[in-house]
């Protein structure tokens, strides 16, 4: 592969994330998958929102658009609709994607617009200091849940699947080979792709919830997850499934809009393509 550095804006390194933060591992895997797909940097647009996850955009030497909390997919939709030939990557945090950006998330999935979303799920709002997020779940200690959280969590995979995403997968920052493989498949997939990556926040999640060390959180990803379809998962129902959950072909939004243009122009030309709408 080309060197990792050739994809980075190295002048901003070392990065902003805390020691042991999983987001750097996702950046690492993402670069490898972009290299594996063989994309030219000028064809890549990364659109991010707000939070620790969003900072990925600043380090990558692509066209980068660092937007508003939760709104990255709405900005990305505008970029993609206007230039369907470009490849769009959207890293999002769990709060970014599923709380403030929940509506944009499900509607982008519904349209099946060709965008690759990476949900970096660390179950906490890290940048603002450790408040609980929509994936924290019940019983979690957070700076806004001092008596432990009573909020039920979202399952990003189920949400994306139900909303209509045509490629949905989950992995963790421990399973780095799987991470590269799934991101590569997601980028290649023609349609709305979501890869949820369980990522560790030792600073704000781990410290308050019984994990003193980064490596302990990674071991938890190793031991607490199992591959979809595996015997292990069938036997231990409390394990979190990893792998590909949805991989299907459905008409992509920009392709469909190209047909709308054809119909409109045929109607205007008085051709057989359709009638002028009233």
């Amino acid at each position: 592969m080309k060197s990792i550095d050739s994809y980075l804006r190295t002048r901003f390194m070392p990065h902003i994330w805390c020691p042991g933060c999983g987001h750097g591992t996702v950046l690492n895997g993402l670069i490898r998958s972009v290299d594996a797909v063989g994309l030219n940097k000028n064809e890549l647009v990364m659109v991010s929102g707000i939070g620790c996850s969003a900072r990925i955009a600043g380090y990558l030497d692509f066209h980068t658009l660092h937007t508003l909390h939760g709104r990255a997919l709405a900005f990305a939709t505008g970029v993609k609709m206007s230039r369907p030939d470009l490849t769009i990557l959207v890293p999002m945090g769990d709060g970014d994607a599923l709380a403030i950006g929940g509506n944009h998330f499900i509607h982008a999935a519904r349209r099946n617009i060709d965008i690759t979303v990476i949900v970096l799920n660390n179950r906490i709002y890290g940048m603002t200091g450790g408040q609980f997020s929509p994936t924290s779940g019940c019983g979690i200690q957070a700076t806004t849940a001092p008596y432990s959280s009573i909020d039920q969590p979202f399952d990003a995979v189920q949400l994306a699947s139900a909303a209509g995403a045509t490629f949905v997968a989950r992995t963790t920052t421990y399973h780095v080979n799987e991470l590269e493989q799934l991101l590569t498949r997601a980028i290649r997939h023609h349609g709305f792709s979501v890869v949820e990556v369980l990522s560790q926040c030792p600073t704000h999640f781990g410290r308050r919830n019984g994990h003193q060390e980064t490596v302990e959180m990674l071991r938890h990803f190793k031991e607490g997850t199992a591959k979809v379809g595996s015997r292990q998962l069938a036997e231990q129902v409390d394990l979190i499934p990893r792998g590909v959950f949805v991989d299907e072909e459905r008409p992509e939004y920009c392709d469909q809009y190209a047909e709308v243009i054809q119909r409109a122009q045929a109607a205007r030309a008085g051709g057989a393509g359709g009638e002028e709408p009233q």
Binding site: V47, H63, L65, T67, L68, R71, A74, F75, A76, T77, G78, V79, K80, M81, S82
Partner: peptide, 8 residues
């Protein structure tokens, strides 16, 4: 948001 993305 979408028009900003498209404008770029």
């Amino acid at each position: 948001a979408a028009i900003i993305g498209a404008s770029l």
